[in-house]
Design a protein around this nucleic acid. Structure first.
Lengths: 143, 143
DNA sequence: ATATATGCAAAGGCTTTGCACCTAG
DNA sequence: CTAGGTGCAAAGCCTTTGCATATAT
Protein backbone atom coordinates (compact mmCIF):
# COMPACT_ATOMS: atom_id res chain seq x y z
CA UNK A 1 0.00 0.00 0.00
CA UNK A 2 1.42 3.33 -1.02
CA UNK A 3 -0.86 4.81 -3.66
CA UNK A 4 -3.94 4.81 -1.45
CA UNK A 5 -4.09 8.55 -0.89
CA UNK A 6 -3.51 11.48 -3.20
CA UNK A 7 0.25 11.74 -3.06
CA UNK A 8 1.24 12.43 0.51
CA UNK A 9 4.77 12.97 -0.73
CA UNK A 10 3.68 15.75 -3.03
CA UNK A 11 1.68 17.52 -0.36
CA UNK A 12 4.65 17.35 1.99
CA UNK A 13 7.11 18.62 -0.58
CA UNK A 14 4.75 21.38 -1.63
CA UNK A 15 4.87 22.59 1.96
CA UNK A 16 8.61 22.28 2.34
CA UNK A 17 8.24 19.29 4.65
CA UNK A 18 10.17 16.08 4.54
CA UNK A 19 8.87 12.78 3.29
CA UNK A 20 9.49 10.20 5.99
CA UNK A 21 8.52 6.59 6.48
CA UNK A 22 6.67 7.49 9.66
CA UNK A 23 4.42 9.97 7.92
CA UNK A 24 3.49 7.47 5.28
CA UNK A 25 2.87 4.77 7.86
CA UNK A 26 0.60 7.01 9.90
CA UNK A 27 -1.44 8.03 6.89
CA UNK A 28 -1.66 4.42 5.72
CA UNK A 29 -2.83 3.34 9.15
CA UNK A 30 -5.55 6.00 9.27
CA UNK A 31 -6.62 4.96 5.79
CA UNK A 32 -6.77 1.29 6.70
CA UNK A 33 -8.43 1.72 10.08
CA UNK A 34 -11.09 4.17 8.99
CA UNK A 35 -11.47 5.72 12.43
CA UNK A 36 -8.86 5.22 15.06
CA UNK A 37 -7.34 6.81 18.12
CA UNK A 38 -3.70 7.79 18.15
CA UNK A 39 -2.98 4.72 20.19
CA UNK A 40 -4.75 2.46 17.71
CA UNK A 41 -2.84 4.04 14.86
CA UNK A 42 0.34 3.39 16.79
CA UNK A 43 -0.54 -0.24 17.41
CA UNK A 44 -1.47 -0.75 13.80
CA UNK A 45 1.89 0.62 12.70
CA UNK A 46 3.73 -1.56 15.20
CA UNK A 47 2.11 -4.61 13.63
CA UNK A 48 4.00 -3.80 10.47
CA UNK A 49 7.15 -2.08 11.60
CA UNK A 50 8.92 -1.88 14.94
CA UNK A 51 10.22 1.22 16.62
CA UNK A 52 7.81 3.97 15.66
CA UNK A 53 7.21 6.12 18.70
CA UNK A 54 3.76 7.14 19.87
CA UNK A 55 5.00 10.70 20.22
CA UNK A 56 5.70 10.73 16.53
CA UNK A 57 2.23 9.40 15.85
CA UNK A 58 0.72 12.30 17.78
CA UNK A 59 2.93 14.82 16.03
CA UNK A 60 2.24 13.31 12.65
CA UNK A 61 -1.51 13.20 13.14
CA UNK A 62 -1.41 16.89 14.04
CA UNK A 63 0.67 17.59 10.99
CA UNK A 64 -1.55 15.61 8.64
CA UNK A 65 -4.54 17.37 10.10
CA UNK A 66 -3.03 20.79 9.53
CA UNK A 67 -2.31 19.73 5.96
CA UNK A 68 -5.96 18.85 5.57
CA UNK A 69 -5.32 15.17 4.97
CA UNK A 70 -6.94 13.83 8.11
CA UNK A 71 -9.49 15.05 10.61
CA UNK A 72 -10.57 14.01 14.05
CA UNK A 73 -13.76 13.60 16.05
CA UNK A 74 -14.48 13.36 19.73
CA UNK A 75 -16.74 10.40 20.18
CA UNK A 76 -16.96 10.34 23.93
CA UNK A 77 -14.93 10.89 27.07
CA UNK A 78 -11.89 9.14 25.73
CA UNK A 79 -9.37 9.83 23.04
CA UNK A 80 -10.32 11.54 19.79
CA UNK A 81 -10.64 9.46 16.68
CA UNK A 82 -8.81 10.25 13.45
CA UNK A 83 -10.06 9.61 9.94
CA UNK A 84 -9.22 10.61 6.39
CA UNK A 85 -10.39 14.10 5.60
CA UNK A 86 -11.34 12.94 2.12
CA UNK A 87 -14.06 10.75 3.59
CA UNK A 88 -16.78 13.31 3.18
CA UNK A 89 -17.06 13.02 6.95
CA UNK A 90 -19.14 10.27 8.34
CA UNK A 91 -21.30 11.48 11.15
CA UNK A 92 -20.92 9.41 14.28
CA UNK A 93 -23.82 8.35 16.45
CA UNK A 94 -22.65 7.45 19.91
CA UNK A 95 -24.91 5.63 22.33
CA UNK A 96 -24.67 6.92 25.84
CA UNK A 97 -25.77 3.73 27.38
CA UNK A 98 -23.80 1.04 25.59
CA UNK A 99 -21.14 3.14 23.89
CA UNK A 100 -21.88 1.73 20.45
CA UNK A 101 -20.81 3.89 17.53
CA UNK A 102 -22.89 3.95 14.38
CA UNK A 103 -22.45 6.16 11.35
CA UNK A 104 -24.79 8.06 9.12
CA UNK A 105 -24.33 10.02 5.98
CA UNK A 106 -23.51 13.69 6.40
CA UNK A 107 -26.51 14.38 4.22
CA UNK A 108 -28.80 14.31 7.24
CA UNK A 109 -27.13 17.60 8.08
CA UNK A 110 -28.01 19.33 4.85
CA UNK A 111 -30.64 21.60 6.40
CA UNK A 112 -28.76 22.24 9.61
CA UNK A 113 -25.76 23.22 7.61
CA UNK A 114 -27.71 25.65 5.53
CA UNK A 115 -29.45 27.26 8.51
CA UNK A 116 -26.24 27.69 10.46
CA UNK A 117 -24.53 29.23 7.49
CA UNK A 118 -27.37 31.62 6.81
CA UNK A 119 -28.19 32.52 10.40
CA UNK A 120 -24.74 32.60 11.92
CA UNK A 121 -22.21 32.46 9.15
CA UNK A 122 -20.99 29.28 10.79
CA UNK A 123 -19.39 26.80 8.41
CA UNK A 124 -20.24 23.41 9.81
CA UNK A 125 -17.55 20.78 9.54
CA UNK A 126 -19.53 17.57 9.41
CA UNK A 127 -16.45 15.42 9.69
CA UNK A 128 -16.13 16.56 13.24
CA UNK A 129 -19.65 15.89 14.32
CA UNK A 130 -20.48 13.31 16.91
CA UNK A 131 -24.06 12.95 18.00
CA UNK A 132 -24.97 11.46 21.33
CA UNK A 133 -28.15 9.69 22.24
CA UNK A 134 -29.68 6.30 22.84
CA UNK A 135 -29.39 3.64 20.17
CA UNK A 136 -32.30 1.50 19.10
CA UNK A 137 -31.09 -1.61 20.92
CA UNK A 138 -30.77 0.18 24.22
CA UNK A 139 -34.08 1.88 23.68
CA UNK A 140 -35.84 -1.44 23.19
CA UNK A 141 -34.00 -3.10 26.03
CA UNK A 142 -34.79 -0.33 28.45
CA UNK A 143 -38.42 0.44 27.87
CA UNK B 1 -30.29 30.37 46.29
CA UNK B 2 -31.80 27.07 47.22
CA UNK B 3 -35.10 26.75 45.38
CA UNK B 4 -33.56 27.14 41.94
CA UNK B 5 -33.93 23.53 40.87
CA UNK B 6 -36.70 21.04 41.39
CA UNK B 7 -35.88 19.86 44.86
CA UNK B 8 -32.47 18.29 44.79
CA UNK B 9 -33.09 17.08 48.32
CA UNK B 10 -36.16 15.17 47.25
CA UNK B 11 -34.45 13.52 44.34
CA UNK B 12 -31.60 12.47 46.59
CA UNK B 13 -33.85 11.08 49.27
CA UNK B 14 -36.01 9.30 46.73
CA UNK B 15 -32.86 7.44 45.69
CA UNK B 16 -31.70 6.67 49.19
CA UNK B 17 -28.86 9.17 48.91
CA UNK B 18 -27.83 11.75 51.46
CA UNK B 19 -28.43 15.45 51.23
CA UNK B 20 -25.12 17.21 51.71
CA UNK B 21 -23.97 20.79 51.46
CA UNK B 22 -21.50 19.83 48.71
CA UNK B 23 -24.20 18.40 46.50
CA UNK B 24 -26.30 21.51 46.81
CA UNK B 25 -23.31 23.73 46.16
CA UNK B 26 -22.38 21.83 43.02
CA UNK B 27 -25.89 21.97 41.64
CA UNK B 28 -26.16 25.66 42.48
CA UNK B 29 -22.87 26.35 40.74
CA UNK B 30 -23.94 24.52 37.58
CA UNK B 31 -27.20 26.45 37.66
CA UNK B 32 -25.47 29.78 38.05
CA UNK B 33 -22.70 29.17 35.56
CA UNK B 34 -24.82 27.76 32.78
CA UNK B 35 -22.03 25.73 31.25
CA UNK B 36 -18.89 25.02 33.14
CA UNK B 37 -16.08 22.55 33.48
CA UNK B 38 -15.58 20.64 36.70
CA UNK B 39 -12.76 23.00 37.54
CA UNK B 40 -14.90 26.07 36.96
CA UNK B 41 -17.61 24.61 39.15
CA UNK B 42 -15.00 24.04 41.80
CA UNK B 43 -13.71 27.58 41.58
CA UNK B 44 -17.19 28.99 41.73
CA UNK B 45 -17.90 27.02 44.89
CA UNK B 46 -14.63 28.13 46.46
CA UNK B 47 -15.71 31.73 45.98
CA UNK B 48 -18.54 31.05 48.40
CA UNK B 49 -17.26 28.37 50.72
CA UNK B 50 -13.79 27.10 51.51
CA UNK B 51 -12.67 23.52 51.65
CA UNK B 52 -14.73 21.74 49.03
CA UNK B 53 -12.48 19.31 47.25
CA UNK B 54 -12.31 19.02 43.48
CA UNK B 55 -12.58 15.26 43.80
CA UNK B 56 -15.96 15.73 45.38
CA UNK B 57 -16.97 18.02 42.55
CA UNK B 58 -16.14 15.31 40.02
CA UNK B 59 -17.96 12.67 42.02
CA UNK B 60 -20.95 14.92 42.53
CA UNK B 61 -21.20 15.91 38.88
CA UNK B 62 -21.23 12.23 37.96
CA UNK B 63 -23.88 11.59 40.55
CA UNK B 64 -26.07 14.49 39.45
CA UNK B 65 -25.72 13.33 35.90
CA UNK B 66 -26.78 9.80 36.73
CA UNK B 67 -29.77 11.29 38.53
CA UNK B 68 -30.66 13.15 35.37
CA UNK B 69 -30.20 16.58 36.91
CA UNK B 70 -27.22 17.68 34.87
CA UNK B 71 -25.66 16.72 31.58
CA UNK B 72 -22.35 17.32 29.90
CA UNK B 73 -20.99 18.16 26.49
CA UNK B 74 -17.56 17.87 24.94
CA UNK B 75 -16.83 21.18 23.34
CA UNK B 76 -13.31 20.53 22.19
CA UNK B 77 -10.10 18.83 23.19
CA UNK B 78 -10.31 20.00 26.75
CA UNK B 79 -12.54 19.24 29.67
CA UNK B 80 -16.23 18.51 29.23
CA UNK B 81 -18.74 21.16 30.17
CA UNK B 82 -21.64 20.54 32.53
CA UNK B 83 -25.06 22.13 32.37
CA UNK B 84 -28.51 21.65 33.83
CA UNK B 85 -30.34 18.80 32.18
CA UNK B 86 -33.54 20.81 32.30
CA UNK B 87 -32.10 23.36 29.88
CA UNK B 88 -33.68 21.98 26.78
CA UNK B 89 -30.11 21.52 25.60
CA UNK B 90 -28.36 24.41 23.99
CA UNK B 91 -26.43 23.27 20.99
CA UNK B 92 -22.84 24.43 21.05
CA UNK B 93 -21.00 25.74 18.03
CA UNK B 94 -17.28 25.47 18.49
CA UNK B 95 -14.87 27.26 16.16
CA UNK B 96 -11.87 25.18 15.28
CA UNK B 97 -9.73 28.12 14.56
CA UNK B 98 -10.33 30.51 17.44
CA UNK B 99 -12.06 28.22 19.91
CA UNK B 100 -15.04 30.51 20.33
CA UNK B 101 -18.21 28.85 21.57
CA UNK B 102 -21.57 30.04 20.36
CA UNK B 103 -24.95 28.53 21.03
CA UNK B 104 -28.01 27.90 18.94
CA UNK B 105 -31.43 26.61 19.72
CA UNK B 106 -31.89 22.87 19.55
CA UNK B 107 -34.67 23.53 17.12
CA UNK B 108 -32.25 23.57 14.22
CA UNK B 109 -32.06 19.86 14.87
CA UNK B 110 -35.72 19.17 14.41
CA UNK B 111 -35.34 17.46 11.06
CA UNK B 112 -32.16 15.63 11.92
CA UNK B 113 -33.79 14.31 15.02
CA UNK B 114 -36.77 13.04 13.11
CA UNK B 115 -34.69 11.38 10.40
CA UNK B 116 -32.42 9.66 12.86
CA UNK B 117 -35.34 8.37 14.84
CA UNK B 118 -37.14 7.09 11.77
CA UNK B 119 -34.14 5.69 9.94
CA UNK B 120 -32.11 4.32 12.82
CA UNK B 121 -34.26 4.33 15.92
CA UNK B 122 -31.63 6.63 17.40
CA UNK B 123 -32.92 9.02 20.06
CA UNK B 124 -30.81 12.11 19.68
CA UNK B 125 -29.85 13.89 22.87
CA UNK B 126 -29.41 17.46 21.73
CA UNK B 127 -28.03 18.56 25.07
CA UNK B 128 -24.90 16.63 24.29
CA UNK B 129 -24.35 17.99 20.85
CA UNK B 130 -21.36 20.08 19.99
CA UNK B 131 -20.86 21.16 16.41
CA UNK B 132 -17.46 22.06 15.07
CA UNK B 133 -16.67 24.36 12.23
CA UNK B 134 -15.43 27.81 11.38
CA UNK B 135 -17.14 30.83 12.89
CA UNK B 136 -18.05 33.87 10.84
CA UNK B 137 -15.25 36.03 12.26
CA UNK B 138 -12.58 33.51 11.36
CA UNK B 139 -14.16 32.94 8.01
CA UNK B 140 -13.97 36.63 7.15
CA UNK B 141 -10.49 37.03 8.58
CA UNK B 142 -9.13 34.10 6.68
CA UNK B 143 -10.50 34.45 3.20
C1' DA C 1 25.79 20.41 5.44
C1' DT C 2 21.96 21.62 7.94
C1' DA C 3 17.40 22.31 8.94
C1' DT C 4 13.98 19.17 10.08
C1' DA C 5 12.12 14.80 12.25
C1' DT C 6 12.45 11.41 15.46
C1' DG C 7 12.98 8.97 19.94
C1' DC C 8 13.20 8.99 24.64
C1' DA C 9 12.12 10.49 29.08
C1' DA C 10 9.94 13.57 31.75
C1' DA C 11 6.25 16.61 32.77
C1' DG C 12 1.57 18.28 31.95
C1' DG C 13 -3.51 18.46 32.22
C1' DC C 14 -7.73 16.20 33.61
C1' DT C 15 -9.79 12.58 36.12
C1' DT C 16 -10.20 8.45 39.06
C1' DT C 17 -9.05 5.49 42.94
C1' DG C 18 -7.82 3.88 47.76
C1' DC C 19 -8.13 4.62 52.25
C1' DA C 20 -9.02 6.89 56.67
C1' DC C 21 -12.08 10.08 58.70
C1' DC C 22 -16.44 12.29 59.08
C1' DT C 23 -21.50 12.98 58.98
C1' DA C 24 -26.46 12.52 57.55
C1' DG C 25 -29.96 9.37 58.54
C1' DC D 1 -24.94 3.69 65.34
C1' DT D 2 -23.49 2.83 60.56
C1' DA D 3 -23.88 3.16 55.64
C1' DG D 4 -22.58 6.47 52.80
C1' DG D 5 -19.89 10.78 51.69
C1' DT D 6 -15.78 13.51 51.86
C1' DG D 7 -10.86 14.86 51.75
C1' DC D 8 -6.35 13.90 50.79
C1' DA D 9 -2.70 11.95 48.31
C1' DA D 10 -1.36 9.09 44.90
C1' DA D 11 -1.89 7.00 40.55
C1' DG D 12 -4.11 6.81 35.93
C1' DC D 13 -4.86 8.00 31.26
C1' DC D 14 -3.88 10.76 27.18
C1' DT D 15 -0.98 14.11 25.39
C1' DT D 16 2.77 17.55 24.98
C1' DT D 17 7.47 19.24 25.59
C1' DG D 18 12.72 19.46 25.85
C1' DC D 19 16.67 17.93 24.28
C1' DA D 20 20.01 14.93 22.01
C1' DT D 21 20.37 12.03 17.98
C1' DA D 22 19.42 10.78 13.34
C1' DT D 23 18.06 11.75 8.56
C1' DA D 24 15.93 13.88 4.24
C1' DT D 25 17.16 17.24 1.21
Amino acid sequence: MSSDTPALAEVLRANGLRVTAQRQLVLDAVTTLGHATAEQVHESICDRVAGVNITTVYRTLDLLESLGLVGHTHLSHGAPVYHLAGDRGQVHLVCHRCGAVDEVSPEVFGDVRRSLEEQRGFLLDVGHVALFGICSSCEMANQ
